[in-house]
Simulated assay, not measured.
Amino acid sequence: MISSIDCPHGKSSIITGSVLALLLAAGGNPQRSVAVGPTVIEFYVDDEPRRGLPIMDFASELVVLDRDGQIHALRGAAKENVRDLKLPYEPANPIETRDRLQSEFGRDFEIVATQHFLVVQPRGRGDRWPDLFERSHRSFVNYMSRRGVKIRRGRFPMVAVVMPDASAMYAEMERAGIQATSVAGVYERESNRVITHDGGHLEFIAATVRHEAAHQSAYNYNVHSRVVITPRWVTEGIGQLFEPEAMVMNQAGLTLRDRVNRDSLRKLKENFDGGQSDQFSQAVRDLIGTDEMFNNAQTTADAYAVAWAMMFYLAEREPKNFARLLTGTNGRGTYQPYDRFARLNDFERWVGSDVDTFAKKVAWFLKSL
């Protein structure tokens, strides 16, 4: 699941999309990226003073990048009650972020630091969750790099929150303003956190964590941008790629069959004759053009399965086009609207074939599996 900030009409850009993407991915100092740029402002979240970089100034809200990597949408009095500090932007260091997390979650939780993560978990849970997040991230970077996708490491520590059970997870999601039901975990784009729990069927939860951790890695390592509208078949297709357990084993996904998402493939066999039906080609076209299949509860499961097939085919059989697609979607303007015509036109330009031909190639690939 990926949440989004509503983008009202009449927006006014403060930083260009390409520069902002660099800041979000690299967490760098704007003085090294921009000759002249905005300085840090002081603002308030739940009456707590924070410091951050203004990203976009809408008529009804100001979007700010916090020093810990969170994105805040300030509205009403919060939008007006800001102060320009005339200081350069510097991301919070891991110690600052760790202290803030400890204060936020309290003594019943511990903060476990790994090379790339700060994992918030109930005390005494050991290394199981930190190891899973680390292995998931390393698998993501390795898989993408092998396929020519440009990776740029971020300087924001990635935060993962593991609650003791499902009810505690839903309470934490409600506190964060996330609306979701019947999930084992989420990646929340604005807070830049994965939230999951430690009280259910471990195999199912682990698959969800691998999916959500792939989102987090993608948004932190410049595969996606958190301030660019990216088609959901692209983002969710990547999440689906990393659900199989073999993807995070020591010899991750050595064979093509190891890398297959069995649940997605089964859904495709049940509802699309393994990709051979006419409905499959139409589903591919619908996903490229809009996100409606994801938004309709009756077609959501199909949307995830078809998105997996499309991204898996590109990654395994057309890696250059896979990388070109990700570079193209990531490089669009900040919060720039993306209508059906533009999405279809961009797809055919980046992938180098029309939609119907592409759907047939994906169907042939699925048949070979």
Rank of each mutant, 00 (worst) to 15 (best):
T196Q: 01
E104I: 12
A25N: 05
G17K: 01
A303I: 00
T327Q: 14
G28P: 04
V209W: 14
A323V: 03
L287F: 01
R259M: 05
E172I: 09
R193P: 09
P130W: 10
R262D: 08
E188L: 08
S145A: 08
T39A: 12
T114L: 06
R232P: 01
G17E: 08
G274E: 08
A78D: 14
V64M: 03
Q276G: 13
G154I: 04
S18G: 07
P164E: 05
T196V: 09
R262M: 10
P244I: 05
P157F: 04
P88R: 05
L326D: 00
S145R: 04
A171G: 15
R175W: 09
G106W: 05
R317E: 15
Y170D: 06
K367P: 10
Q121W: 01
N81Y: 08
W364D: 15
P88N: 07
L326G: 00
V362M: 02
G331H: 07
Y313I: 00
I205P: 00
K360R: 15
G331C: 06
A305T: 09
S353P: 06
K267I: 14
M163Q: 12
G200L: 05
G333E: 13
E212T: 03
P319Y: 10
I151K: 04
S4Y: 15
R128Q: 14
F58A: 15
D278T: 15
V162R: 00
V112D: 03
L202W: 13
V355T: 14
T255S: 10
R257F: 10
E236A: 01
P38H: 01
L268H: 06
D68H: 06
F109Q: 05
S136D: 03
L85A: 05
D198R: 00
E270F: 14
A301W: 11
A59M: 09
I14A: 03
L202F: 13
N295R: 15
R343C: 07
V19G: 05
I288N: 01
N296F: 09
G28T: 09
V223F: 05
A25V: 06
T181I: 11
V209F: 12
A297I: 13
S217D: 07
D57E: 12
Y143D: 13
N321I: 00
A323W: 03
Q282D: 14
I178G: 08
R266D: 13
